[in-house]
Amino acid sequence: MFTLVDLVQPDNLAEAYQILSDKRNNTILGGCAFLKMGSKRIGTAIDLTNLNLSYIREQAGFIEIGAMTSLREIETHTQLREYFNGVLPKSVHNIIGVQFRNGVTVGASVYSKYGFSDLITALLALDTEVELYKGGRMLLVDFLNKPHEKDILVKVWVKKNNRKAAYLNLRKSASDYAVINVAVSKLDDQWTIVVGARPSKAAIAVRASAALSKGKLSVEEIEGAAQRAAEELSFGTNARGTSEYRKALCQVLVKRGIMEVLHANQSDN
């Protein structure tokens, strides 16, 4: 059962962070959907509602997304549906339902580094940074690789550029966690291939991305890159699929992702 002892709504981040650090079981609240499923007894729950962290805004070449922004806002945001071929809205499209996405937050989704995350996979294929209250601003990839430290995710920065991107996934049923998800993007000649729900957290297939960036994008090269991605990344087994199946899917979806980005590029040029 979900229990908490106290709930506070601090007026500034410093105070929020102070309370968070005070006790081990003090906890930041996002939309509570995930927290609610746990049985951990929360000491002081910290509600960030008063900190105006729900926004998607564009400035200085970046799109800033506040931690308390809901996934539904990502999904319906007019510009986000345009940028990067709408990869961010697409990535959250399948998560449970509209009411659910109206409640759950970007901050929690990114901070929690869920292995199954659809959003992280898509963000990782873009030029994304996160801003932590204590840890400061860093690349998303660095954040994902950093050991867990209690902090507050304040916002996500996505560099506004001409990246083309695609997001693909395979689910056993429409509102399940993904068996695997893939995001592929291309900026100028540089490709990024990301695979998530392996089922561990999303990672960039560095070598496959590099190889693809160097080549001429022949069918063989594309298939080779897809195969390389499947080989360089590790896959695990859980109730949704075995590692072997994930590996095979990775290859198929990466290939399709690359093709989709190429098509997007062509239709743009």
Binding site: M37, G97, K172, S173, A174, S175, D176, Y177, A239
Partner: peptide
Amino acid sequence: MATNSFMQYKIPCRKD
């Protein structure tokens, strides 16, 4: 039982 919630036991939703 490993399938004791609607997240682990998926009944069809509208899209399925």
